[in-house]
Design a protein around this nucleic acid. Structure first.
Lengths: 207, 207
DNA sequence: GGCCCAATGTTAATAAAATAACAATGCTCA
DNA sequence: TGAGCATTGTTATTTTATTAACATTGGGCC
């Protein structure tokens, strides 16, 4: 099945919202209700769910638990997938924090940094290794995904390295644009760009 | 002028890349060269620049300095715009760090948090005030944009507050979806969603 | 000067995403 | 039971974004 990127993003959001519903002991939810929580339209929700072939048996909305499982079957891998954070500064710690207590198929299993203060310590719930150990640890822990939160100047070099050692997906949070060989999936996000975008639209609103 | 959101994002990226060119003493750059640095196509670059009405006088590529200025005229506001970070945990500090040393029309002028350890201290280059001071400081410092990096449970409440006090743009980095009245621009970004997307495409690539 | 050519600016075509329209389903309640 | 209705699943339309096509420009070089 080939899902649009935007749909994949929303599925992740649906699942998180549905997990919140479970906490609230809500076992069924209407498409318009789920949509409202995410500030999108009900049509969009239904369309996305159509794409993954889910359909509610009842007309009492979607079975929350069932839908969570269905989404999991689509976006999770069968077995769990191991992740590492490269660069455990403020941003790296923030990202690592998100993994704590989340039940997910994504396991954060290591972080890397070259600061002697950090090496071999457990930071934000994950052990930090020096860059020298990257090759060994990627192989030893079967790490598939790298989250890059290093200073911009190290980004390219480290990317080449982790790709060479078998990383198949990179989430790049640095301001350095990267390129990766085909077969490796790259997602990039730049905070400053988003913030400048906000500034632009604030300005255009004329205030 | 009404620019597509994606174009605005890219303009921000063009500018940063162009500033790097200046550092390298490169005063002219071809569209395909600029494109290559950002891993997009030259057509896209030219099209974006067309939309902002920029055209190179020479056929030796774009005048880097001139283009930086032109982009600035489009995406920056005339006077500088003040920004605050709300919640100065790991993520808040990471964001604050990006503002340091950046010459931009966006000024980070305050942060807010309720941790007594942080209040009234300068953290990541910006003074931290307690939540109680939000109203006063927004008005006193003429803060227009709020960057939300608080725990999810506080997000909604704080948003209502800052909107009431005159914030016109919100960058939401929490996992809580927000809604804002019209006239306020909201941009949301969720790291976990992006990372799950990476995991999905890694899985689909079949490895 | 005038031909060549690389690079641009613009219009046209395609692809992707969001929205709208609507038929079908099955629950509710008289 | 069956009409009414809320909600769904799906197809069609519109909007937005990207890519392709191409005419134009003006400098380099003989």
């Amino acid at each position: 099945m080939k899902l649009p990127g935007k749909t994949v993003e929303r599925l992740s959001e649906y699942r998180r919202t549905l997990l919140e519903c479970l906490n609230e002991k809500r076992n069924f939810i209407f498409s318009h209700d789920l949509a409202a929580r995410l500030h999108i339209t009900a049509v969009q929700v239904r369309r996305d769910l159509m794409l993954i072939g889910y359909s509610s048996v009842l007309r009492k909305g979607y079975d929350v638990r069932e839908l969570i499982d269905t989404i999991g079957k689509i976006i999770d891998s069968d077995s769990s997938m191991n992740v590492a954070v490269i660069g455990i500064g403020n941003l790296g710690r923030a990202v690592a924090g998100y993994f704590k207590g989340k039940r997910s198929k994504l396991n954060l299993v290591a972080s890397f940094d070259n600061d002697p203060q950090k090496i071999n310590k457990v930071i934000s719930g994950v052990k930090c290794y020096p860059y020298n150990d990257i090759e060994r640890m990627i192989k030893e822990l079967d790490i598939r995904i790298a989250i890059l939160t290093v200073p911009p100047d190290f980004a390219r070099e480290l990317t080449e390295e982790v790709v060479r050692y078998g990383i198949k997906g990179i989430m790049n949070f640095t301001t350095t644009p990267l390129n990766v060989p085909s077969g490796v999936y790259l997602e990039e996000y730049d905070m400053i760009t988003s913030i400048e975008k906000v500034a632009y639209f604030v300005k255009e609103n004329k205030i």
